[in-house]
Each structure stands twice: as structure tokens, then as C-alpha cells.
């Protein structure tokens, strides 16, 4: 666990930057966090990031805030969690405060809406980049159950609008069944 000023500084600046550029909230911030903390800083493992995402998803409140708290806790304990929480909350807090003052002008500004439209395409590209990498790793291991789970979860959520928590619960049960099957196999062999 790191608890020096330098680490807290990086934690705050990273989450602040990510939060300031994460449009639309929700899952969008996860690929960005992964890039920063797994790829660039190497503070977390790939698997850990996915686990933290699942936890952030299953606990109440905004996913971005939850994920930041979990990340901060992982790197530097409770003080780290407070730092990343503030880093995540301050950008929208400041931006929305300003917007609420200039609400009418902002709403009708054509240049702002064009820039936003462009950024939307950029955000979609960032998410696809990360999804390609992560799905590639799962498919690359060539085990049937995870690949089927990946496809099934996507179909359930995209085509049938199944609630995300139900999907996670079902997949947790699949994982548990797989684990029981594996341990039985191990015991008999």
C-alpha cells in the first residue's frame, strides 16, 4: 500500500482528469480507468479491474464514484478512497454549477453542441478499443464457458434489456457451478 504525497497526487489528478472527460456517466469511465491504472501505471491487474467493476456495478450509487472509491482503496486505503472520490466528484460539481448559472445560453450554443457531437464519436472509439482488447483476452483462452457467457450476457442486455444486476447474478451462479464441477473433477481424478 502506498501512502505518500506523490501517490495521492497521482490518484487525485488521474481521477480528476478521467471524470472531467467522461461524458454520459456509467460504464464509460471504466475503460478509461483501466487504461490509466492497468496499462499506464500498472497499479492494478486486468482481472482485478474487472472484479472492481462488478463490485462497483452491484453497490448503490453512481458507478464512476463507486469504481473510483474501490480503486483509491486498493492503492492507498481509506484516505486513497477519499482522494479518488473527491477527484471524481469535483469536475461534474464545478461544471454543473457553472452550467446552472448559464443554463439558457449554454443550451442554445451551436458550437458547444458540435464539439459535444464530435466527442461522442471519440468516446465510442475509446470504449470499443478497450472492449476489443478485453474480449480478445477472453476469447484467446479458448474456454467455452466464458465465451458463451460473454455472448449471452451481451445478447441479454442489448436485445432483451435484462436488468444488469440479474445478468451479473446469473453469471455469478454460472461461475459457482463451474467451480463446483471443477473441484469435483479434481477430487475424483
Amino acid at each position: 500500500m502506498r501512502r505518500d504525497a506523490h501517490t495521492f497526487g497521482i490518484l487525485f489528478l488521474s481521477t480528476f482528469k478521467l471524470s472531467a472527460f467522461t461524458f454520459g456517466g456509467g460504464y464509460v469511465i471504466i475503460p478509461l480507468m483501466r487504461k490509466q491504472f492497468v496499462d499506464r501505471l500498472g497499479w492494478l491487474e486486468e482481472q482485478e479491474m474487472l472484479d472492481l467493476t462488478a463490485i462497483a456495478q452491484s453497490s448503490p450509487g453512481p458507478i464512476a464514484v463507486n469504481a473510483a472509491i474501490l480503486l483509491g482503496y486498493r492503492v492507498a486505503g481509506v484516505p486513497g478512497a477519499l482522494v479518488t472520490m473527491l477527484g471524481t466528484v469535483i469536475p461534474p460539481l464545478v461544471i454543473l454549477s457553472v452550467i446552472s448559472l448559464f443554463y439558457d445560453a449554454f443550451r442554445s450554443n451551436p458550437i458547444i453542441s458540435r464539439v459535444m457531437k464530435g466527442m461522442q464519436a471519440g468516446v465510442a472509439a475509446v470504449i470499443f478499443d478497450v472492449v476489443l482488447t478485453m474480449a480478445g483476452q477472453i476469447i484467446g483462452r479458448k474456454r467455452a464457458v466464458p465465451i458463451v457467457t460473454l455472448a449471452g450476457a451481451f445478447i441479454a442486455s442489448w436485445f432483451f434489456d435484462v436488468h444488469i444486476l440479474l445478468i451479473l447474478l446469473a453469471c455469478a451462479l454460472i461461475g459457482l457451478a463451474q467451480w463446483r464441477a471443477d473441484t469435483k473433477k479434481g477430487a475424483s481424478a
Partner: peptide, 9 residues
């Protein structure tokens, strides 16, 4: 079990 689902989400 949950990890592939997160990628799907």
C-alpha cells in the same frame, strides 16, 4: 463467471 459479463456490459 462475472468477468465476461462485465466485458459484455
Amino acid at each position: 463467471g462475472v468477468r465476461p459479463a462485465v466485458v459484455a456490459m
